Each structure stands twice: as structure tokens, then as C-alpha cells.
Amino acid sequence: MVRELLLAHGNGGEETWTIIKDLFLKYLDDPILSKLEDAAVVPLEGHIAVTTDAFTVSPIFFRGGDIGKLAVCGTVNDLAAMGARPMYMTVSFILEEGMSLEDLETVVRSMGDTARSLGVRVVAGDTKVVPKGTADGVFIVSTGIGRVVYPGLSSHNVRDGDIIIVTGTIGDHGACILAAREGLDFETHLESDCAPLWDMVEALLKEGVEIHAMRDPTRGGLSAVLHEWARASGVSFVVDEQSVPVREEVRGLCEFLGLEPYHLACEGRMVLAVAEESAERVLEILRQHPLGTNAAVIGRAQKGKPQVLLRTAYGTHRFLEPPMGELLPRIC
């Protein structure tokens, strides 16, 4: 029995049908997907949010997740950041000839389990197999569709006086991938924070708190989010360095390699800009959720030149530079 991918699995014929039936439909089964039409027809109403993303993480299996779980979480979290309830996903697999079918099955099972746990339906997909050496196991391209239930969230809406909150420790995913890739071992194992955030975000939105912007800090981490907001809204940020939650093992890895934890990706965290009068209630709600127990106020937006300043433990300020160069490719 063939236990690895062949180019024939991407030829559109019997081999393709076999892998669709025995693997993809087995774990991603949905009445709409199972029709195998050229396009999925889905019911939608109201304002719709659409996002698309590609996942090339290396290695494809890591502590806390894999590329299949990551693809669902990354897609869902982008929708959640716009106040949209995730509803549908489409996925495209670019597979390398010779990839283990057992590994592929693990990835697809993980994707299916994560999507079902959220009530997200995978309604369309595609599979391509490329010759050995022209990819790296598996790449996944996804599109997510959600219904906007909390309109008005935007990186352009951050205001002078807004309080900046993170929902948990930062840099966990980036540090985990870096440690795995470089073969670094620690007494306390680093683990990715990869997780879907809609349930936590929905709990906030139902309470009617005033949130102006949300963003999941993936590539470029917290620094990238704050710099993007500064440019979009024309504000500056002052972040209290001691208030930013960072795990000791992440901090230690960064010090060892000369990196900033603020530049490392997260895959299960959200950054929020909230009205000052809502900040205390937002923290209270977040900390009641399992994914928000380490939520913290880290800083404030203010008028001024678009920039990000870190207030150090000594009361001085330093610029937090935006991510530049090849910090850590293929992090997600």
C-alpha cells in the first residue's frame, strides 16, 4: 500500500479521487463540501468579513499544534479581530511528492477537529501535488468568511487616551518555532500559544464594552501591531515594559539570541485598543476566560508623532523599532 504522496495524487483522476474520499472528506466532511462542486453555495446575511492567508510554518508539527490547527486558528482569529463570527472556510493544499500520508492525515484531522470545535464549516477546497524538492511537505492556503456582529473595529479608530491590552503572554509561538527549528532544548519546554480566539472575543462583544481596534499579533508580533496602528490612526504609544507579560523561557531565549520578544509571533493572543472607561471591565472579562488569564494593560495611545516608546524599569524611554529584515521566516 502506498504510504506517501505521488504526483498521481494531483492528476485529477482516480488517485485524486481516492485521497479526497479516503482522507479529506473523512476529516473535513460537510454536506456542502461533499457535493464536490466547482464552487460552494452558502447562505449569508448582513455584513460579511472575508480574509485569506497562507501557512508555510516549518516544522509542520510543533509543541502546541501543527500546520492544520494553525491554518484554522489563524483564519478564525483574523475574522474575530474584525468582530466577525467565523462561519465558513475554504482550504487549498499544496503538497510535496513523497510526503508521508500519515503526516498528511494527522494535519487534516487536526484541521477538521479544530474547525468543528468552533462550528466552522469547511465548504470548498483544492489539492495540488508538486514534484519533490519544489515545496516542503505541505503548504496550506485558506479563506475565511464570517458575519460581522460588532461593526466598527479598525486600525484607523485608535484614539488618544485608548488603553492597550494584550490577552496573554507574548512571543510564545515564535519562540517555540525558533527553538524547534534550531534544536534548542530547555528544562521548561516552550509551547506555542496556537488557539482559536472567537469564543473569548465573543464574550467581550456581548458585554457591550467599547473596543476601537483588535489585532492578532502574528508575524512581527506586538511591535508590528502597534506600529501599524500608529501609522493608520496617527497616534503614538507608550508601553510599560514591565507590564508586558512575557514567559521567562521566552525572555531567556530572546536574551540568548539577541531578539526582542515584542517582535516574536503569537498565534493565540489578541491586542486591543479600548476606551479608558471600558478597560477595567475588559480585563475582568478576559481573565475569566481560560485563554485570557494573563491579560494585562500594557500601555496607552496618545497624541503625537506615530511611534512606539517603551518605558523601562528605570523610568527612561526607548524606541521600540518596527520589525525589519529576516527575523524569522516561515513562522506561520
Rank of each mutant, 00 (worst) to 15 (best):
A40D: 05
L222A: 10
L184A: 07
I165K: 08
V50E: 05
W229L: 10
E4H: 11
K69N: 12
G133Y: 01
F62E: 01
N294A: 14
R300G: 05
E105V: 01
S154R: 10
L6A: 09
D53Q: 10
D160E: 14
V107N: 02
V130Q: 01
E210R: 13
V120I: 02
H212V: 04
I331Y: 07
V239T: 05
V41H: 07
L184V: 10
S100R: 12
P245I: 09
L70E: 09
R63L: 12
R300K: 15
A40L: 07
G174Q: 06
F24W: 04
L328S: 07
F237N: 11
A135I: 00
F256E: 14
Q302M: 15
A232T: 04
N157P: 05
L104N: 07
V225A: 11
V148Y: 08
V246E: 07
Y150E: 10
P329I: 01
A296K: 14
I145P: 00
I20F: 01
E284V: 04
D66T: 06
M324D: 08
Y150C: 06
K69I: 14
D66P: 08
M99G: 06
F93G: 01
M87Q: 09
R281P: 04
H47K: 12
L101R: 13
G252Y: 01
R116V: 04
D29K: 14
G268N: 09
V108K: 00
L95M: 09
T143C: 11
T75I: 00
G171M: 07
E96Y: 01
P217E: 09
V250D: 06
L272C: 03
D30M: 03
T90S: 14
V108F: 01
D162C: 08
L309M: 13
F55K: 02
A213R: 08
L190I: 09
